[in-house]
């Protein structure tokens, strides 16, 4: 009996809910932690980044206008879908990170739990970051958090699934939309995650994932006048400086990269959500 032909997966980008190839037609070789060939991933260009920003902008009114309850449900749905493909993700994390299967299983579980954890925050973050402010006048004065807009996210190089989920979830749970530049070294789990997102009732364009060289794509996102914030978690120190300079042009919110290695298993707190929220304050006269 002849051996069955291997059906290999084509890793493409995730933009506006679809899976296009890079408009540049380029790809690059992705290897495992041990150096074995894994696949060719799409190498996104600045024009792919531009298209992704347009998709994220288009998705923003619908996503930010959805109820917090609805956004929480959808994030929970992402966790459900991820659970159903647990084995696939464990295998990909083993290849990408070179960890043992047991450890990889823990990391995938943590990623699923992280999504559930953030899903729960969707309708509670307002109560934590909002407030009724005492003011010296006859007014009710109320502050409530609102999403910043389109957020560019440079995913961390380590933690191909848990790290990625830990930077995407806090951005979108509050109503932002995002353009994620995946880990350059280990981009394959991000595209598999995109397949999960595409089947989780998440509206197209809320999360857009680009694979390729961060140093090539990030400066275009940092300078883009229609991007409202940038998360530099995955940036090298030099890239972070360049990006922060470009980001100043339209006063983007910038989340600087962490000082040292991050343990993604630790409870993240509300910091990442708070980083991409604006505060709206309303003065309301008392009486009629």
């Amino acid at each position: 009996m002849s051996e069955r032909l291997v059906v290999r997966k084509t890793y493409k980008l995730f933009v506006g809910g679809a899976f296009p190839r890079s408009e540049s037609g380029r790809s690059y070789v992705v290897t495992s932690a041990k150096g074995d060939f894994l696949a060719n991933a799409a190498r996104a260009s600045r024009k792919d980044a531009r298209d992704a920003v347009a998709a994220a902008r288009k998705a923003f009114p619908g996503w930010s206008g959805a109820t917090a309850y609805n956004r929480g449900q959808i994030l929970y749905r992402v966790a459900e879908m991820l659970e159903g493909r647990r084995a696939q993700f464990v295998a990909e994390v083993v290849q990408a990170d070179g960890v043992a299967a047991k450890k990889a299983g823990e990391l995938v579980d943590a990623a699923i739990d992280r999504l559930v954890w953030y899903a729960g925050w969707s309708d509670k973050i307002g109560a934590v970051l909002g407030s009724a402010n005492p003011v010296a006048g006859p007014y009710f004065n109320l502050s409530s958090p609102e999403p910043t807009g389109v957020v560019a996210v440079l995913a961390p190089p380590m933690g191909p699934l848990l790290g990625l989920v830990s930077v995407i979830a806090p951005v979108i749970v509050t109503g932002n939309t995002c353009v994620v530049v995946a880990s350059e070294r280990a981009p394959l789990p991000s595209i598999t995650l995109a397949e999960v997102l595409a089947t989780s009732d998440l509206p197209g364009g809320v999360v857009n994932i680009l694979t390729g060289h961060q140093a090539e794509i990030a400066p275009w996102l940092a300078g883009h006048m229609d991007v409202n914030a940038i998360d530099l978690t995955g940036a090298t120190p030099e890239l972070a400086v360049t990006c922060e300079e470009s980001a100043a042009e339209n006063l983007k919110r910038v989340l600087r990269p962490p000082a040292g290695p991050v343990d993604w298993l630790v409870d993240p707190g509300t910091e990442r959500m708070a980083a991409f929220l604006e505060t709206k304050t309303v003065w309301h006269p008392i009486g009629t």
């Binding site: 920003v53 275009w220 229609d226 470009s246």
Partner: peptide, 9 residues
Amino acid sequence: TGRYAGPDY
């Protein structure tokens, strides 16, 4: 300018 423009402006 060499940077992508946005409709906000």
